[in-house]
Amino acid sequence: MGFKLLSKLLVYLTASIMAIASPLAFSVDSSGEYPTVSEIPVGEVRLYQIADGVWSHIATQSFDGAVYPSNGLIVRDGDELLLIDTAWGAKNTAALLAEIEKQIGLPVTRAVSTHFHDDRVGGVDVLRAAGVATYASPSTRRLAEVEGNEIPTHSLEGLSSSGDAVRFGPVELFYPGAAHSTDNLIVYVPSASVLYGGCAIYELSRTSAGNVADADLAEWPTSIERIQQHYPEAQFVIPGHGLPGGLDLLKHTTNVVKAHTNRSVVE
Results as ranks from 00 to 15, higher is better:
I50T: 06
W88N: 00
N184H: 02
S16M: 05
A130P: 06
E39V: 12
V124Q: 02
V45R: 01
A19D: 15
V124K: 02
L156G: 02
I224N: 04
L9V: 13
E267K: 13
Q229F: 10
D216K: 08
L83W: 03
Y12T: 11
S155D: 12
V28R: 08
H57C: 00
A213P: 12
G53W: 06
S208R: 09
G246E: 12
A215S: 09
A25T: 15
E219W: 06
E172N: 04
H117Q: 04
M1A: 01
K91D: 15
P239W: 00
P35K: 13
A21Y: 15
Y202V: 15
D85F: 00
I58T: 15
V121E: 01
G122F: 05
S181E: 01
E101D: 13
L217W: 06
H252C: 01
D164P: 07
I40F: 15
R141K: 13
E33D: 09
G2M: 05
A259P: 11
V265K: 12
H260V: 12
E267F: 08
V171R: 02
E233D: 12
G53H: 09
M1C: 03
F116A: 08
Q49H: 10
A213R: 10
S208K: 10
N149A: 15
L250R: 00
T261R: 12
V189H: 06
I238Q: 01
V265T: 13
Y196G: 00
S7M: 08
V37T: 13
D216C: 04
G240L: 04
K251Q: 14
P138H: 07
L250A: 00
S191M: 11
T114P: 01
S113A: 08
F174S: 05
V45Q: 03
K251R: 11
V126Y: 09
E80G: 09
E80C: 06
G242N: 03
K258Q: 14
I104W: 00
D183N: 07
V189T: 04
E39L: 15
P244I: 12
V108Q: 00
G122L: 05
Y231W: 06
I224E: 01
A178R: 11
L159C: 04
T253L: 00
T14F: 06
V132F: 03
E99M: 13
E157Q: 14
Y34H: 12
F63R: 06
T253P: 02
S16L: 08
A218G: 13
C199F: 04
V121S: 00
S70P: 04
G78N: 10
G210Y: 02
G89M: 00
R110P: 06
E80D: 08
P221G: 09
D64W: 08
T86S: 02
E33P: 08
A59E: 08
S160M: 12
P176M: 01
S70M: 03
G72R: 02
I104C: 00
L156M: 09
V42D: 15
A133L: 13
D64E: 07
R46N: 07
A66C: 05
L10K: 10
A133W: 09
S27N: 07
S56L: 15
T93D: 01
L204N: 11
G148F: 07
A213N: 11
D77C: 04
E225G: 11
I100H: 01
P152V: 02
L13I: 15
I227H: 01
S27G: 12
G2I: 05
F26I: 13
G158H: 13
N71W: 00
F116W: 15
K8R: 08
S223I: 00
R167V: 11
F168E: 03
K8Q: 09
V121G: 01
G242R: 05
F168Q: 02
L83Q: 01
D125A: 08
I151V: 10
Y188T: 00
S161E: 14
A95L: 15
S161V: 14
E219V: 09
P239V: 01
L6M: 12
G89V: 04
S113I: 03
A87P: 02
E99I: 13
L13D: 05
P107S: 13
H115D: 01
R76K: 07
L243C: 08
L106N: 08
P41F: 09
R128Q: 12
R263L: 14
T140A: 05
A15G: 07
P170M: 08
I20D: 15
A165D: 08
G210M: 04
P138Y: 09
A215F: 05
V189R: 00
D77P: 01
G65E: 10
Q103L: 14
P69E: 15
S139W: 11
L47G: 03
A59T: 08
V212N: 07
I104E: 00
L96W: 00
A130G: 10
P232C: 07
S113P: 06
E101Y: 11
K102D: 13
H252D: 02
Y135L: 01
Y231M: 01
D214I: 05
S31E: 08
Y188D: 03
T134E: 01
N255L: 11
S223E: 03
N92V: 00
Y12R: 09
T254R: 11
P152D: 00
S56Y: 15
I227P: 02
A90V: 08
Y196I: 02
K4E: 07
Y135N: 02
S30Q: 11
G210S: 04
D164K: 12
I227Y: 01
G148T: 07
H260A: 13
L217G: 04
A133E: 13
E233P: 04
V266N: 09
G245W: 03
G122P: 05
T36F: 08
K91E: 15
L47N: 02
T207K: 14
S113V: 05
I227S: 04
T86G: 01
I20R: 05
A215L: 05
L6I: 07
H117L: 01
V11I: 13
Y231E: 00
A192K: 11
A200D: 02
T86P: 01
I58G: 04
G242T: 05
D79M: 12
A179H: 05
S31G: 10
N149C: 06
D77G: 09
A21L: 13
T134A: 05
A178H: 09
G245T: 02
T222Y: 12
A25R: 14
A209M: 06
G72D: 05
I238L: 06
P69R: 15
L97Q: 02
N262Q: 12
V54G: 02
S264Y: 13
W88S: 00
L97C: 00
H154M: 13
G245A: 07
S139D: 13
P170H: 04
Y135D: 03
H115N: 05
D214T: 04
L10S: 14
L81R: 03
E147L: 09
H260E: 13
T93C: 00
A213D: 13
R167S: 11
I238M: 09
E233A: 12
L24C: 07
V189I: 10
L10D: 13
G43C: 05
E145Y: 12
M1Q: 03
D183P: 01
A259R: 12
Y68T: 14
L127M: 04
L250P: 04
I50Q: 05
Y68V: 15
S223Y: 03
S137T: 14
L249I: 07
V237I: 07
G78Y: 07
A209L: 06
I40D: 10
A66W: 04
E150Y: 04
L195I: 07
G245I: 02
I104Q: 00
V194A: 06
E219T: 10
T182L: 13
P232M: 09
R167M: 11
L173T: 03
N262E: 14
N255R: 11
Y68A: 15
A66K: 12
I104K: 00
A136Y: 02
N255G: 14
Q228G: 10
E145H: 14
A51F: 07
P170V: 11
Q103V: 12
N149D: 08
D85L: 00
E219A: 13
Y12H: 08
R46P: 04
G122K: 07
G131H: 09
E225I: 08
S22R: 12
I17A: 10
Q49I: 11
S30W: 07
A179S: 06
C199H: 03
G148N: 11
M18A: 10
A87N: 03
D64G: 14
Q103T: 14
V54Q: 03
V67H: 15
P239Q: 02
I186Y: 01
E267L: 09
